[in-house]
């Protein structure tokens, strides 16, 4: 069991990265759409996109930290 711990942690990190990966894709895609529709609002959309990505990414990063903790 002790020998498997690292491998299990790796799998756990991989699982933790799925959701945020999808989420960031959706955020970025919609941001691109929004910017294409309203180029004049691009600055605001970009800021909001980074915020959204930052919040979503946090989940993957918590998984990353747990990988180290394991």
């Amino acid at each position: 069991m002790e020998a498997l711990k690292g491998a299990i942690a790796l799998i756990g990190y991989g699982l933790a990265a799925i959701g945020p990966g999808v989420g960031i894709g959706i955020i970025a895609g919609n941001a691109v759409q929004a910017m294409a529709r309203q180029p004049e609002a691009a600055g605001m959309v970009r800021t909001t996109m980074f915020l959204g990505i930052a919040f979503t990414e946090a989940l993957a990063l918590i998984g990353f930290v747990l990988f180290f903790l394991a």
Partner: peptide, 17 residues
Amino acid sequence: LVRPFSLAVRLFANMVA
């Protein structure tokens, strides 16, 4: 709790990676 933790971990984890 989550705000400071995620703020710190985001920067840390990105640079580690």
